[in-house]
Nucleic acid binder design. Structure first.
Lengths: 185, 185
DNA sequence: GCCAACATGTAATGAGTTACATGATTAG
DNA sequence: CTAATCATGTAACTCATTACATGTTGGC
């Protein structure tokens, strides 16, 4: 089977909730699925154009006061079908490439200090993420969410993120301790 | 900064331990870093050619008995320098794209059964991985490993893999239970 | 006048994936 | 003879990233 453009489904999924411009889509992605899925303008605009050509979304030119005009994209009935078909199917096997693990695997070829440094950077990164998760969580509770079902799914992914970052931090810390203990011996 | 080809470092790293042909490299990668880093022939052969052109590896034609001839690649002094420079540096920020999480986030748009199905598939995948980790672990202990330092790093990444898969399985199971409980209400 | 935020795109490049194509050698 | 494994590559294509390019609007 040929590879599918996954960007389209991320965009369509967000548009299932609300119509957005390309610029707004980027922000919406950052604030919702951003910690496990990211998109750049370099993908968003071309993919929106191709989705429109296929009739999966439609655009509307909107004049704004106090801001530049924009194109608002809405999902069409065909788009909803296309998206639903994808979301029901099993996820593809995820091909991962974890550069930190690759460097740690080859850690024998650099100093213990360099290894510890890498692990510390990873810890900071995930501590930062954990703070972001709290922001998203409060964002979720303060906003008006008429649909409790949607919220349930959002909290599930948030829960995953928290577990993932916590696990990573714990692993990094234990590895650093391993290094420090073996240095004492 | 421009993007770096990471495949080259995976190959150079393996060649730090031992000289291999392209075909053997693929196998060595699968059996060592395979669960967090994969490469296909479509990348391996072209990258080996470009590494040779840059003088980072050298190849030798080897005739074999009972098997077709092959090219054995060895890392050069320049290659060792190039690799060491990379391995000492911090890992780049990892851009993740987790399709299962994306589908779960949009889980409101398909049936609970479809969601449970996806989580079950993920569980099988990681249970399979956990078995593989045991294989790698026994592979590591039965083989003659003169260098205990190398082994330490391999076990670190293995430990990460085990934690990651265990965490994922636990999360999936709890999410399935959530679904089943809310169905009872 | 200038900066920040809003807003939309294109072009160049490089990386990754899949399919294709070929051939050697051994075991059954 | 045939299948499996060993072995090396190329071509076509898609995808993602980065840099570039342009323009609006409001606030200081």
């Amino acid at each position: 089977m040929s590879r599918e453009n996954k960007t389209q489904f991320a965009l369509l999924g967000i548009l299932m909730y609300q119509s957005f411009s390309g610029y707004e889509l980027k922000k919406a992605i950052n604030y919702s699925i951003g910690f496990f899925w990211s998109e750049d303008y370099g993908s968003i605009y071309p993919v929106l154009a191709s989705l429109e050509k296929k009739g999966l979304v439609k655009k509307e030119y909107v004049h704004q006061e106090k801001k530049p005009s924009k194109y608002i994209y809405s999902i069409t009935d065909t788009g909803i079908k296309h998206f639903s078909e994808w979301v029901s199917r099993d996820a593809d096997y995820e091909k991962i490439r974890h550069e930190l693990l690759l460097k740690i695997f080859f850690g024998h070829y650099c100093s213990v200090e360099d290894n510890i440094e890498k692990l510390k950077t990873e810890i900071s990164f995930h501590e930062n993420l954990l703070e972001k998760y709290q922001e998203i969580r409060s964002h979720l509770s303060e906003d008006s969410h008429p649909n409790e079902s949607e919220k349930k799914y959002w909290l599930m992914t948030l829960d995953y993120g928290i577990r993932y970052s916590s696990m990573t931090i714990k692993w990094c810390e234990e590895m650093i301790n391993n290094f420090k203990e073996s240095r004492k011996e």
